[in-house]
Amino acid sequence: IDAAQIVDEALEQGITLFVVNNRLQYETSRDSIPTELLNKWKQHKQELIDFLNQLD
């Protein structure tokens, strides 16, 4: 699994991931984030931050 897949998966569930001051953040209108997704974010945090920083 790679960062792009995780970002896409989040988007499919209505969650936008982004980076502020090198910290992973998210925006969503959902009430809660699925635990499975949160765990993936934690496991791949640095990859996600690097990936999202490249997009900007």
Rank of each mutant, 00 (worst) to 15 (best):
T28D: 02
L37E: 03
L17Q: 00
W41I: 15
S32M: 08
V20K: 14
V7F: 09
D31F: 05
S29F: 09
I49E: 04
V20F: 11
A4D: 03
N21W: 05
K40S: 04
D56H: 14
T16R: 15
D31N: 07
I49N: 01
I1M: 13
N39Q: 12
D2C: 12
Q54I: 09
K40N: 05
N53G: 09
Q13D: 04
Q13T: 04
V19H: 02
E47W: 05
N22P: 00
K40E: 04
Q13M: 14
T16D: 05
D8N: 15
G14K: 04
A4G: 10
F18Q: 10
A4H: 08
A3C: 09
L52F: 08
I33R: 01
E9C: 05
S32Y: 13
K40A: 05
E9T: 04
L17T: 00
L55Y: 09
T28W: 05
A3P: 14
L11Q: 09
E12C: 07
A3V: 13
E47C: 07
L11I: 08
Y26N: 02
L24E: 01
L55A: 11
A3E: 03
L48K: 00
N53H: 07
S29Y: 10
A4M: 07
R23N: 15
S29A: 12
I49C: 04
R30N: 10
H44I: 05
E12I: 09
E12T: 12
L55D: 07
N21R: 05
V19I: 07
E36P: 07
I1G: 08
W41P: 00
G14R: 05
L48F: 01
T35F: 12
D56V: 09
A4W: 11
H44S: 05
L52S: 00
S32P: 15
I33W: 03
L55F: 08
L24G: 01
D50R: 10
Q46E: 10
Q54R: 11
F51H: 08
Q5W: 10
P34C: 03
L11T: 08
T16G: 04
E27H: 14
V20S: 12
D2I: 14
E9I: 03
K40Y: 08
L24V: 05
L11M: 11
L48Q: 01
V7R: 04
R30Y: 06
R23A: 14
I15T: 02
L38S: 06
F51R: 02
I33A: 04
Q43S: 10
K42W: 13
N22Q: 06
N39I: 13
V20G: 05
L11Y: 09
A3W: 07
D31Y: 05
I1Y: 11
T16L: 13
T28G: 05
L37C: 05
L37W: 06
L37N: 02
V19M: 04
Y26H: 04
A3T: 06
N22W: 04
P34W: 02
L48N: 00
A3L: 13
R30E: 06
D8Q: 15
D8R: 14
L48P: 00
A3H: 03
S29I: 09
K40W: 05
A10I: 02
D2R: 13
T16N: 09
E47I: 15
Q5V: 10
G14E: 04
N39T: 11
P34Q: 04
E12Y: 08
E36N: 09
D31T: 07
N21K: 06
F51T: 02
Q46H: 08
D31V: 07
K42H: 14
N53P: 03
V7T: 03
R23P: 01
Q25H: 15
S29Q: 11
P34S: 06
E36S: 09
T35R: 11
W41E: 00
N21G: 11
L48W: 01
L24Q: 01
L37T: 04
I15H: 04
L52M: 03
Q54G: 14
D50P: 03
A4T: 05
L17A: 00
F18N: 06
V20I: 11
N39F: 11
I15Q: 00
V19F: 03
E12V: 09
K42C: 13
E47Y: 07
S32F: 13
A10Y: 03
I49Y: 03
S29C: 07
N22G: 15
L52H: 01
L48D: 00
V19Y: 04
A4Q: 14
E27L: 13
Q54D: 10
L17G: 00
K42V: 12
L11A: 12
Q46F: 08
I49W: 03
E27I: 13
L11K: 15
K40F: 09
L37K: 06
V20L: 11
L11S: 09
P34N: 05
I6P: 01
D56M: 10
F18A: 07
A10P: 00
Q46I: 08
R30L: 12
S32T: 13
E12M: 14
I6K: 01
F51K: 02
R23H: 14
D31L: 07
T35I: 14
R30D: 05
I6D: 02
F18R: 13
N21I: 03
V7Q: 02
A3Y: 11
I1L: 11
Q25L: 14
I49H: 02
F51M: 04
Q46D: 11
F18D: 03
N39Y: 09
E9F: 05
Q25G: 10
I6N: 00
I6M: 12
N39C: 07
A10Q: 01
A4E: 07
A10M: 03
D2Y: 12
F51Q: 02
L17D: 01
W41S: 01
N22L: 05
N22F: 05
K42A: 14
L52Q: 01
D8S: 15
V7A: 03
V20E: 12
V20N: 09
L24M: 03
L24P: 01
A3K: 02
W41H: 02
L24H: 01
K42T: 12
N21A: 09
D2W: 09
E9Y: 06
I49T: 04
N53T: 14
N39K: 11
V19A: 06
D56L: 10
T16H: 12
S29D: 14
N21P: 01
T16E: 07
N21Q: 08
L17H: 01
V7S: 01
R30A: 09
Q13E: 08
H44Y: 15
R30K: 11
V7K: 02
E36H: 11
Q46W: 12
W41Q: 00
N39M: 12
Q43V: 10
E47F: 07
E27V: 13
R23T: 15
T35H: 11
V7C: 04
D8L: 15
P34F: 02
E12N: 12
D8V: 14
Q5K: 13
I33L: 06
N53F: 07
Q25V: 14
Q13R: 07
V20Y: 11
E9P: 00
Q13L: 15
Q43F: 09
L17V: 03
P34Y: 02
S29V: 09
L48M: 04
Q13G: 06
A10G: 03
P34D: 06
Q5N: 08
A10F: 05
L38C: 07
G14M: 04
I33N: 01
L55C: 07
T16Q: 10
Q54A: 14
F18H: 11
E36M: 08
V19N: 02
A4P: 05
N22V: 03
V20R: 12
R23I: 15
W41F: 11
D56G: 14
H44V: 06
Q13W: 13
E27F: 13
T28P: 09
Q13V: 08
N22A: 06
L11D: 04
D31S: 07
I49K: 03
F18I: 14
L37Q: 03
H44N: 08
L48T: 01
T35Q: 15
I1Q: 13
I1K: 08
D8T: 15
I1C: 09
T16Y: 14
D8C: 10
A10R: 01
Q5I: 06
L24A: 00
I6S: 01
Q43G: 05
K45I: 14
S32D: 10
D8H: 15
R30P: 03
Q5E: 09
R23M: 15
R30I: 08
I49F: 04
